Simulated assay, not measured.
Amino acid sequence: MLECAPAHAVGDAANAADSGTLARLTGAFNGWRHSGLTNEGEQYVAGYPRPPIDRGAQRFRTLIEGQLKHVDPHARRPPMLVVNGNPTPLYTDEQGFFARPWAFGAGSNSIEIISADGAKRQRMQFYEADRSKPQARLRAIVTWDDPRAQVDLHVITPSGLHAYFGNPTLEDGSGFDVDSVDGAGPGIFSSAAPEHGTWLFFFNYWGNFDSTGYNFDPSAHDRDVITATLTLVFNENTPNERRETRVVPLRKIGDLLLVKSERL
């Protein structure tokens, strides 16, 4: 769950009671920090279509929780949640509750909620002062746009180490800080000291799931073509930060695509 940190938020989301806001975020608006819990030990407010199921190391995960004030069941697209410039569809339950995991780095971070029609925005900025965890020099983030599909990120290091949901942490200290299988992700792989050489990033359309659990029914999804996004972030929250984005279509269960080959 989210906890208050000794930081100060700024922006139009600073007052949760403001009638103009899009959502009520759980907890005070003065920053968040990792709760120290992992895997199923977290307490969830809500998720879509059920409380989030997480795999992987979940080492530095923080939950972004709250409730949209207005939910339009007929909207052609969902609202968007943008974390540090990374957009992902914000799927909720019927009451508008949501819970999305993220891994925040030290320094300045931002969260923005954009209404489904794009007309309204709610944003907050906060400073993460906890430097007890390694600062990621490389992050690989996967998100997708189907709440009933499960997409996995696979990372191959230059020395041949393979990180994925079945092997979330590697011998070099890198690994998955977040590996969410609830709706649109995210999966977040991080490395504090990325090895020099060629890194490979793959997407696998693993299967679908609903309130009954996982399934491999080829029709049990919301979109015929799932749009999955890979974002690579280098030197996050520093003056040298840069990012690259790749968007790929996934059409059938079992699809395994090489999305990016990156030489560091």
Rank of each mutant, 00 (worst) to 15 (best):
W32K: 09
G47D: 01
S35G: 07
A28L: 14
R33A: 07
V10T: 15
G27V: 01
P49M: 10
R55M: 13
P51I: 11
L25N: 00
A57W: 13
T26F: 01
W32A: 07
N30S: 08
E42D: 14
R55W: 06
G36L: 08
N15V: 07
T62L: 10
G20V: 00
G31W: 14
D54H: 06
T38N: 11
Q43V: 10
G31N: 11
S19E: 06
G31T: 14
T21N: 10
A46W: 05
W32N: 08
E42R: 07
L63F: 15
R55A: 12
Y48L: 07
R24E: 13
R59Q: 10
R50G: 11
D12C: 02
L37F: 09
Y48C: 12
F29E: 10
L25P: 02
G20Q: 03
G11T: 10
R50C: 12
P51K: 12
A23M: 00
S35V: 04
S35A: 13
R59H: 09
G36S: 06
D18V: 00
P49G: 12
T38Q: 08
G47Q: 05
V10D: 14
P51D: 15
I53V: 11
G41C: 13
R61W: 02
G27T: 04
V45S: 12
P51F: 12
R61H: 09
V45E: 10
N39D: 11
A23V: 07
H34F: 05
A57L: 14
A46V: 02
D54F: 00
T26G: 00
V10H: 11
N15D: 07
D18Q: 04
N30E: 09
G11M: 03
L25M: 07
I53W: 05
D54V: 05
R55K: 11
P49S: 15
A28E: 14
T21E: 01
A17N: 06
G20L: 00
D12L: 02
N39E: 13
R24N: 14
R24Q: 14
A46H: 10
G47P: 04
Y48V: 10
N30W: 04
L22N: 01
G41T: 07
T21I: 00
D12I: 02
R55T: 11
T62H: 02
Q43W: 05
A28W: 13
L22P: 00
Y48E: 09
R24D: 14
I53L: 07
A57H: 08
L63I: 12
Q43A: 04
R33Q: 12
D12M: 02
G56A: 03
A13G: 13
W32T: 12
A28T: 14
T21Y: 00
A16D: 04
S35K: 04
Q43G: 06
Y48D: 06
A16K: 09
S19T: 07
P52H: 06
A9N: 15
A23T: 03
E42V: 04
A14I: 15
Y48F: 15
S19P: 10
L22S: 00
V10P: 04
D18S: 05
R24S: 14
A9C: 15
T62V: 13
A9I: 06
T21S: 11
A14Y: 14
A46C: 08
D54N: 06
R61D: 01
A14G: 15
A16F: 03
P52V: 08
A16P: 08
T62K: 09
G56T: 01
E40G: 12
V45T: 09
T26I: 05
H34A: 02
A16G: 08
G56Y: 00
L25D: 01
D54A: 03
G47T: 01
T38I: 05
H34M: 01
